[in-house]
Design a protein around this nucleic acid. Structure first.
Lengths: 154, 154
DNA sequence: ATAGATGCAAACTATTTGCATCCTC
DNA sequence: GAGGATGCAAATAGTTTGCATCTAT
């Protein structure tokens, strides 16, 4: 019985690894153990992570420079978003297939919540129509800043 | 004749200074010569400026720390916006009374254009409705990234 | 075999802090 | 006169670069 469960789990793991690795390769990145793990750290997180947070969440010790460079190439390959949350450092987040979203950040405690609202297509069309010197929009950033219920109470 | 023009210009200058100074004071900031000039540098610029750009545009030499601190208090007082354009440093821009707007940035050449599009009120309402843990929205950031016509050609 | 990925050291850039002095109100 | 504003020096944080070595394809 335990044998079968173990086997099943191993299978899951193999499949999961395979898809992550495949995903990296199809986007022109080498599937090194470091990048696979970096990818999975981002995958597990519900909110955008800073560089130190990413490094903390990786089991294996990785060099900071390597993380910067890996993220840079993942961003360029369109697998990762770089998010600016008004702190003076970047946060990173996986580009989900169908979960394009934005964020709302508490100015007091820093809490981050995902926001599903986005009429991106509409917005981008309007912007291009109004713009005099731009003809292509590749992406956009939309973040809200406010107070969470907890902080409003206090 | 020239005398009258000169006088007129002096009057304009005086009025302008007076309003800038008054503006600073009513927002709880002291109207020092440095802050007045910082304010006017931002006022003259059509696009958000970085710290080095601001310092370059100020006639008087000012310390970088002072600029950081002045901007910090102007942002807190709600007179200035801090804008993140995907570079790894902040840009600053005056909050106009009735010209709330956003930006589109060229990924290739860095060109910045203002974008008038914004259904802020609508958006913020929707966001609050959907959010589980937030009840107040103070502000939002919306920037577009793409390619300007010039860069598309090349 | 080769091009990309990594680690280390060091440079560079961005931002913050402490303290003494100055200036506006 | 008091408290905010400034300048200087130095610390801290964030990011980038060069180079030698390693590794996935």
């Amino acid at each position: 019985m335990y044998f079968y469960i173990a086997n099943f789990l191993r299978l899951c793991y193999t499949i999961c690894m395979a898809t992550t690795e495949e995903h990296l390769r199809t986007h022109g990145s080498k599937a090194t153990s470091g990048r696979v793990e970096l990818f999975e750290v981002l995958e597990k997180s519900k909110i955008p992570l800073s560089i130190p947070e990413i490094m903390k969440n990786m089991g294996k010790k990785v060099n900071q420079t390597t993380v910067y460079r890996a993220l840079e190439s993942l961003v360029e390959a369109g697998m990762v978003y770089r998010v600016d949350l008004g702190h003076s450092h970047a946060h990173y987040e996986l580009c989900g297939e169908n979960n394009h979203h934005h964020h709302i950040v508490c100015k007091q405690c820093g809490k981050i919540e995902d926001v599903a609202v986005c009429e991106s297509k509409e917005l981008e069309k309007t912007v291009l129509k109004k713009s005099t010197s731009f003809s292509v929009i590749k992406s956009h950033a939309l973040e809200f800043f406010g107070l969470c219920k907890q902080c409003v109470k206090n």
